[in-house]
Each structure stands twice: as structure tokens, then as C-alpha cells.
Nucleic acid binder design. Structure first.
Lengths: 295, 295
DNA sequence: GTCAAATGTTTGTCCAGGACGAACTGGCCA
DNA sequence: TGGCCAGTTCGTCCTGGACAAACATTTGAC
């Protein structure tokens, strides 16, 4: 059970160049070679690379952690955890791990009804996302459990969204992600928060080229462009892309960037609102409506 | 308005290696260089690369088309068109091209109600998908219009699906795609067809590693595994993956493979049902229920 | 004429190892 | 505490050669 460099790039998100240069500099990974002299990575090294990648997504630096053992890495992820999640979240996480699909659906629907859409997104979905990521780190669940969970949340949110209509002097908001950012759940969560406030959302899905984003902004005459960046996204590329996009768009169009990646961007990007906290979006949309109430 | 090689890889889906080797072999693309000797690609070349990529997805070979002019490339896409779509489809396509989002939503919802979910999927969504692809080829619409359309269909289908419940002796069906196959719309269309027939669907989303698919099949004790392959997918890889998966799964689990890519597979794969036509799925699920009615 | 095997061509991906700039770190000074 | 300046780290880019798998074409047998 071994993989070539292309498959490792796919499964870890580390570029071929990076994999080669780590090997040269740090001595890890240290793949075997096939008859043709090409790298073949054993599953254990790939798994360790995935662990390292997730730790780097949280701010660790490669030079400090690539040479650590798997146990030491696990220790870091423990150190990185904040506080234990609420019991409600742990119950849901357990349903995911034990594949109890109908019960998971039922409990999600119930939580949504009980809390309302905004609180559901902020108090249930966001921490549950985090808990699911942690569970993956510990090896409690695998990729398919994560995907199945994502599908269920998506289903619940889209269903709730279908019932909502824009109202009043509603801002038009375009939602999308940059190329190489396939995670669309964040967009859906933001769309839910905004739609409740009466915004008219134009969901473009994921991985939209910058030039196309600019075209879409003009075609739909949007007031706000909302972009989502998951933890796995490179913050440098995010900052560069945002600056590029800012230059392409009229100054009147607001750009809001959110997601775990954005929290890691140190230097502010001129003309772009970096949203570190999900709940902030609600404040921001309310502020927008107040500002434009008289028009 | 120029891009570096990383951005071009992002926007075209062609790897850096491929971009460099095309330049060396075919003399195209021919990017300028910045002060540091690095490639910078003008927008016009990037657009031509995108066109070439789509033609290659339809079976054209790079050596024959990279050196053609933009006009000649457009000619090739015309040659590939089949017959003119129904008027209803053209009206919808026009709404997409002219960014009339609310009207598009309204007409899709109306078509769904008028035709019923299954006919909607087969007679409206499928031909509309095709028409949208053609429109992109002609340059009538861009990437963002395509994505926005996809989002609307997804919204309509998921909404319809939420209302359905498994019934009777329902087959459990797991739906997903292989890694490198990000198109999930086909899955949703199939899920709609099956759910109407009372199947219990387990949607895993896209890009699931084979080993994880096998784990999911066992964990959820599914009767049928349904996989979707878009036109962009390589048919050889599809056939190889299907054979590999067949070997990993119990013989009692049926494997159904569908999508435009599958229609191109010549040699049948042992123990795998290759579904060339969307409507066939409905027949197949009915046959399954008849066969298992007495149990 | 049809099918299969053999041969030639095309094409994507891999490799090594050097280089560089942007971002980060840590020490210094106000 | 905050700002500035070296030193270090790190990802990405470069060139140009190589090779195997996929594809196309010819040859040969029935």
C-alpha cells in the first residue's frame, strides 16, 4: 500500500515541490524508490504528512515539527485543543462516528428548530465542524464520516435557506471561494446568517477564478463580495488573491473574507474586511442595513 | 492583467509541468518573463488554454490543437454539437446567460412541479447541462454563469429530496465519486431518481478514496454503490478503479457506474453495471425492488 | 476483409539541484 | 510597549533531461 508523489500531493495538499524540498532539507518524508528511481511513499509516512499539514494549518512551522515522531505530533494536537466541547456537540459527534445517519438527521433538524438558523450555525455547526476535525486527528473517524457529516449539514442548511426571501433594502451578496478551495460549507453557513437578515444572496459555489468573480460582481451588481477560506488554504495566497481582486473591483463593492485561514493573516489587506469570527458577520450586515436605511 | 504559473495552473487545471513542457514542445503558451526570469501569462493565452482544456476533455489531443488559432478552436467545438435543444431548454439557457436569477429560479421550480422530479431530472436538467456546456464552448457564457446554474439546480433538487422518505423494502444506495472527480451534480440527479422510488440514499459527496468507499459500504450495509463520472474523467482510470473496487467489496453489493465518461468505456468491467443512459437507473431500481419484493 | 500483434509517436509526469524573495524570528533601541 | 533591522526559514520558481503509459499506425495471419 504505497503512493507516488502525485497521489501524496492529492491526499496531503502539499505540493510536489514542497515534498521534494522537505526531503532534501529535513530528511522527512523519506520515500523508497521504485525500479525507475521514482519516489514511493508508504502509507505511514503519508499519514504523518497529513498530521503535519493539519498542524501547520493551525500555525505550527514545518522546521519545528517535521522531524518529530507521530506521538510527539499527537501531543501537539492535544496542546492545541482549547476547551472540551459542550455535551450536545459530543453527542452529535458520537452519532457521526457510529454511523447513525437517521438519528443524526433527526437531531440536527431538532437543534435547528430549537435554536433558530443563526444560533444553529454559530453554536452548533461551527463547534461541531471543529469537533469532527479533532476526531479525525485522533483517528476516531475517517474521511467518509467527515464527508457524510458535511452532506447532512449541507442538506439541513440548504433546506432552511429555501424558505427565505430577500426583504427591505437588502444588500446583494455574492458568495464564493478561490480556486483550490473546495470547501463550500463555510459559504453555506455565511449564506444562512445573511439570508436571515434579509440579504439577497448569489451563491456561486466553490473554486471561482478571480477574473470570473470580478465579472460576476458586475453582472449581478452586488454590494458585498463574501469569500471563505478554510484552514487548509495558504494564507499568503489568500492575501495576494484578495489584494488582486480588490484592484479589479469598484471601490464601492465591499469585500469580506472569512474562515480559519483568514484568522492567520497578520497584515491587513487594504480595502478588505478580514472576518475572524463567524458571529461578526451578523453585526456587519446589520451595520450595512443601518447605513443604507435611508436610501 | 497577467498571471504567474501558479495562477494559470489554478485557472486552467493544467499542471505547472504540463505548462512548461507545452511551451518547450509546441511553442505555446509563450509567456513573457518578469524581472526575475519567471513566466508571466497574458489573459488571452490563459483563455486559449482553458478552451484547449475543454476540447481535450472531449477527446481532442493536445498535439493537434495547441497550435490552432482561437477561431479554429471554436470551429472544433461547433463540429462537436449534436442537434438543437428543445425551445424550453433554450429559454432556460437564455435566462442563465442574461443573469436573470429570480426568473430562472421561478421557471425551474415551475418545471419541477409540472413534470415531477424524475421527468424534471431526465427531460430538463440533463439536456440543460448539455446546453450550458455548449454555450460555454461558444463563448456565450463564462465559468461563473455555469457555477451559478449548478448551484440553482442543486438547490432545487436538494429541496425536493428533503421531502422524500425511504419506503417498503428499500435498497440502501451509497452515492459518491472517485478522487479527481469533483462534479457532484450527477450524484444528486441520480439520488433524486432513486429517492422517488423509495430508496434509502447515503450521499457521501465527491472525491472519496477507494479504501474509504469500501469502509463506507460495510459500515452502512448498502445494497448498491452508485458512482458518477463526468466527461472530464479519464475512462481508463475509471475502468481500473471500478475493477479494483469490485475486488474489495462483497459480491452481493451491486456497483452501478454512470455519467458521460462511462459511455466511452469500451470493454465491460466484470461485476459492474455501466449505465449509459440516465433513464435506465429508474428501470434498474424497479427491477431490484421486484426481485427483493418477497423478502 | 477482420482481427491481433508489433512498431512508432505523443504526452504527462518525474527527477536533480540551484536560486530567490517574501515572511517570519529575535535582538536592539527609543 | 512599539518600531526597526539583520538573520533565518520556507515555498516556489527555474532548466533540461528522462521515461513509461497511452495512443496511432503499420504489418502479418487467418
Amino acid at each position: 500500500m504505497t503512493l507516488n508523489i502525485s497521489a501524496v500531493e492529492r491526499d496531503t495538499g502539499l505540493s510536489k515541490d514542497t515534498l521534494r524540498v522537505w526531503e532534501r532539507r529535513y530528511g522527512f518524508p523519506e520515500p523508497a524508490r521504485d525500479a525507475n528511481g521514482e519516489r514511493i511513499y508508504p502509507a505511514s509516512q503519508v499519514h504523518k504528512l497529513q498530521l503535519i499539514k493539519r498542524l501547520m494549518d493551525r500555525g505550527h512551522r514545518p522546521g519545528k515539527i517535521v522531524s518529530l515522531s507521530a506521538d510527539e505530533l499527537a501531543g501537539l494536537s492535544d496542546a492545541a485543543r482549547t476547551r472540551a466541547p459542550r455535551e450536545e456537540i459530543e453527542i452529535l459527534a458520537r452519532l457521526i462516528a457510529t454511523h447513525q445517519l437517521p438519528e443524526l438527521r433527526r437531531q440536527l433538524a431538532q437543534a435547528l428548530m430549537k435554536q433558530g438558523l443563526q444560533r444553529f450555525v454559530i453554536d452548533t455547526v461551527a463547534p461541531l465542524n471543529h469537533a469532527v476535525g479533532e476526531a479525525w486527528m485522533r483517528g476516531d473517524i475517517g474521511v467518509f464520516e467527515e464527508h457524510l457529516y458535511t452532506e447532512q449539514i449541507q442538506s439541513a442548511l440548504r433546506n432552511a435557506l429555501a424558505a427565505l426571501q430577500p426583504q427591505g433594502r437588502a444588500p446583494r451578496v455574492l458568495l464564493t471561494t478561490f480556486p483550490h478551495e473546495p470547501h463550500g460549507l463555510g459559504l453555506l453557513m455565511v449564506e444562512a446568517l445573511l439570508a436571515v437578515e434579509g440579504a439577497a444572496c448569489v451563491p456561486l459555489g466553490t473554486e471561482m477564478p478571480l477574473a470570473e468573480i470580478a465579472r460576476a460582481v458586475r453582472a449581478h451588481r452586488v454590494d458585498i463580495l463574501a469569500l471563505s477560506f478554510s484552514a487548509a488554504f495558504n494564507e499568503r495566497q489568500a492575501a495576494a488573491g484578495l489584494a488582486e481582486l480588490r484592484a479589479m473591483l469598484p471601490g464601492a463593492v465591499l469585500i469580506w473574507a472569512g474562515g480559519e485561514c483568514v484568522a492567520r493573516i497578520r497584515k491587513p489587506v487594504e480595502g478588505v474586511e478580514l472576518v475572524g469570527e463567524l458571529a461578526t458577520v451578523v453585526e456587519m450586515i446589520k451595520a450595512w442595513r443601518t447605513l443604507h436605511a435611508g436610501l
